[in-house]
Design a protein around this nucleic acid. Sequence first.
DNA 1: ACCTGAACACCGTTCAAGT
DNA 2: ACCTGAACACCGTTCAAGT
Lengths: 224, 224
Amino acid sequence: MSRKPLSRERALAAAVTLADAEGLKALTMRRLAADLGVEAMSLYYHLPGKEGLLDGLAETVIGEIEAAVARTADTGDWRTSLRQRFLSAREVMLRHPWAPGLLSSRRTIPFGVYAYYDAIVGTLIAGGFSHRVAHRALHAFGSLALGFAQEIFSPAAAGGTMDVEATEADLPAMAEALPHLSAMMAAEAHDAADPMLGWCDSQVEFEFTIDLLLDGIERTGGQG
Amino acid sequence: MSRKPLSRERALAAAVTLADAEGLKALTMRRLAADLGVEAMSLYYHLPGKEGLLDGLAETVIGEIEAAVARTADTGDWRTSLRQRFLSAREVMLRHPWAPGLLSSRRTIPFGVYAYYDAIVGTLIAGGFSHRVAHRALHAFGSLALGFAQEIFSPAAAGGTMDVEATEADLPAMAEALPHLSAMMAAEAHDAADPMLGWCDSQVEFEFTIDLLLDGIERTGGQG
DNA sequence: ACCTGAACACCGTTCAAGT
DNA sequence: ACCTGAACACCGTTCAAGT
């Protein structure tokens, strides 16, 4: 089957493929090895255990983001530059729904993440902002800079498949107990198939939040 | 040892205690049972498996937040009302560092979360905002409404203990590779013991981001 | 250098059995 | 009604052994 010898790169690529197809929970050492046509223990020769595998996965994702950012044109404007960057990151996250959960769970931050935020600070400083504003901005951006919003209402990213049967079942009861939320959803009439707030994390809302934050940073007055 | 009979409530309380003390990873069915002076299988009589336990834990945390919010005085002003709410939630999250990770990982949203966001929408509507603005505001707030920011730079919440030895080891090399981040940290001189951005998620930054968002929502003009 | 088999210490969970 | 013991199907991982 697999003529090419096993390697860290081949293992990580297979891990990405597996996670894309079946989620992070399906990514076990034994299963990954099986996908590679090899025994589980062989992986330990190329990777320092499961945690090392996950760290490598995180680095791989950050690398994809950097590559996506590099493909965009540099406008020289800090605002559109950051906006493009965040949207590029988001595209990568949409390709890998497991990535937000993975990045949030890592207790040692991949170096690429530092480099990524370093570039953001560089953009802000070049735009005329103070280090203080840049610092606050980083915190305000949070994970939005990496292309994903909070996952509270988007269970799909949590790992497994997205199941809402239980939620859908008692929607009528919910509507009664949650008057404001129901009224809001009715007024928005977002998407008839949408149970409550699920899957609202669309491009529109992402860009709205980005612009809200960029507006706020701009108004901080650190520029000029 | 334990005279009182086992119950869902007692199991959940013990689970919170265990998670507070040793993190979410230490919370296994067998370990929780041992802490309760009971056999692992006994838990299944009171809880529908591990997932059910975690769902119960999530509900417990939301309940704590609701209780904290209920203890605050209602000012009638939508802005300070939301601000107080978010800060109350944050206090609960600080008591339970594992809670953000738990809430993010749940694929079925606890009902209390819906109720919580329903109250937020109610506050916004009473403040004169449109349903559209309220909807966008919910997305913009994200998990900040539940008292926690993105965990990218705060590994402590990920589950285990916070270890940064590896990161601290090559700080000099990092400083060279990350000029803007280094300059920023030097300028901020946040805390000498702070390695890079870790543990920056202080009260100051949390409130800064909240105010940035509230400012943005206010300026949207949905009020009046 | 690279891969493997058997074994170990853990998981969550089922199921029949105890009281 | 409530709890248990033994057993099963999984994990990640060590370690000595193969080629």
